[in-house]
Amino acid sequence: MSKLIDVQNLTLQFRTDEGLITAVDDVSFSIDRGEVMGLVGESGSGKSVTAKALMHLNAGNAIYAPESRIILHTDQGEVDVLSLKKQSDLKLVRGGAISMIFQEPMASFAPALSIGKQMVEQLQLHSDMSKARAKEISIEMLDRVGISDASKRFDQYAFELSGGMRQRAMIAMALSTKPKLLIADEPTTALDVTIQAQVIDLMKDLVGEFGMGIIFITHDLGVVAQTADKVSVMYLGRLIEEGPVREVIRTPAHPYTQGLLAALPKLEDLDSPLTPVPGDIPSPLERPPGCVFHTRCPKVIGDICRRTLPHAIDVAKGHSAACHLHEEAKGAA
């Protein structure tokens, strides 16, 4: 499979009144065409900020470290996303080759414009098609995501649609420009389980049909298991584990991933007690030295965890974790 996007050593800080906040720290990953990557982590782990960086969409107080690289592979060649400056160039990563679906569809549609008008507007921004053709494509897309009576819905406003419908319309809008990469930021979190299941099925069908890559940001490991090919787990801005979805969920290698899985209430075993990950995620202003997780880790092996930053180590093919435990194991072997 050919590469779609390459993120190398992405480090991102925000300048605030309280000082420099490191939101993303030396994160690297890549996505192939047609591949679905789940990006997991709790609030404050930097997953949304990472996704926004791909569209160069972070606020003006963001500082990218000089070694950060985001390379988008398009049919016309490679594009260095972080070097894009002009609005007209940024269009490529903002709705052109990369599209985004947000968590709260009510807040992402303009309330005073009809759904159709917004869809046509963005199609015309990204291509030179006529208004009539744009309307045709929009209605086709609405129909494709399972909105009944698409030509009628085209003229309705966001408030007239139910939550599930709105999220479908959002997906239709994001896909109408035929992006190569779709970023879905918690697209099902605000939905009921029965509707969430429908939206997940829809997204899976669409991957097969359109062949785009997807970054699926979520805190729900169940949703990841059902949608992703591979998973990346983030904690306090660091990528601590990545690998194929079956591997990571069945044999998690990092104590944080293990803790997340143990904290999930499981329906198969009602008697097992719930085991929380102890403590709270530290404030980004007080990032712990050494391994960022050591303040909550039940498996700390000594001063090395408190002092030295662990590096990603392969535990299986394509499956790596940044934890000193695995360094020890490797050193001993």
């Binding site: 139910s162 599930g164 419908m165 009921d192 389980v193 029965t194 509707i195 969430q196 299941a197 429908q198 997940i200 099925d201 729900d220 490991l221 169940g222 949703v223 298991a225 059902q226 979805v245 079956r246 969920i249 899985l261 999930l264 499981k266 329906l267």
Partner: peptide, 25 residues
């Protein structure tokens, strides 16, 4: 029953599509 089957399973091989509800409340 439909509510149960809509919970996304942690097992990537168990898609549970059989009992999907159509439409919304």
């Amino acid at each position: 029953k439909a509510l149960f089957s809509a919970i996304p399973s942690l097992d990537p091989d168990d898609t549970g599509r059989a009992q999907r509800l159509v439409g919304e409340i």
